[in-house]
């Protein structure tokens, strides 16, 4: 057993000091140390996206993230995006569009989409983009390509794409 490491980071705006083995992933720290069970452990290998959180504003797979490497960083989880009473636009849109069946992938989908919309705003191109420069047209093909790191075994993809498209249309580029 190695000496436990102390990592201090901001999670949903609150400073936390977490003590753990170097092997502790950000996902396990969130779920097992802080009780933030919104982020899900699907595959635990970066393939399904259910563990997606925002790290310094960018979406990452928290299952492949070693906590000890992120001292001083800022993390936002699904719990930090909205609450049942005050949902984020994407949370509300997923409900309105019925973008889920079992709901297991939903926190990861919403965290991922939150950052993805910001990536579109920044003008980042994708594999689906016609050209590499200029504004990104948020077509269903663009949204599907950009969300390919989030799997939904219930197959709710059409409604997930609709929910995300709604929010982009409402909020504008």
């Amino acid at each position: 057993m190695q000496t436990p490491l102390k990592t201090t980071l901001s999670i949903n705006g609150t400073r936390h000091e977490i003590e753990g083995d170097a092997r502790l992933t950000l996902l396990d720290a969130l779920r097992d140390h802080l009780g933030l069970t919104g982020s899900k452990k699907g595959c635990d290998h970066g393939q399904c996206g259910a563990c997606t959180v925002l790290l310094n504003g960018r979406r990452v797979n928290s299952c492949l993230t070693l906590l000890c490497m992120h001292d001083g960083d800022e993390v936002t989880t699904i719990e930090g995006l909205g609450t049942p009473d005050t949902p984020s636009d994407l949370q509300r849109a997923f409900v309105d569009r019925d973008g889920m069946q079992c709901g297991y992938c939903t926190p990861g989908q919403i965290c991922s989409a939150t950052a993805m919309i910001e990536e579109i705003r920044q003008g980042w191109p994708s594999h689906a983009s016609e050209g590499l420069e200029g504004e990104v047209a948020p077509t269903p093909a663009e949204i599907a390509e950009r969300m390919s790191g989030n799997l939904c075994r219930c197959g709710c993809y059409p409604n997930i794409v609709d929910a995300i498209a709604d929010v982009i249309a409402e909020e504008g580029p």
């Binding site: 790290l55 979406r59 797979n61 993805m116």
Partner: peptide, 16 residues
Amino acid sequence: LSRAILAGASGQLRNK
């Protein structure tokens, strides 16, 4: 180079 990178992995993985 942009095209090759964008053809690989997922948005989450490319961020790390």
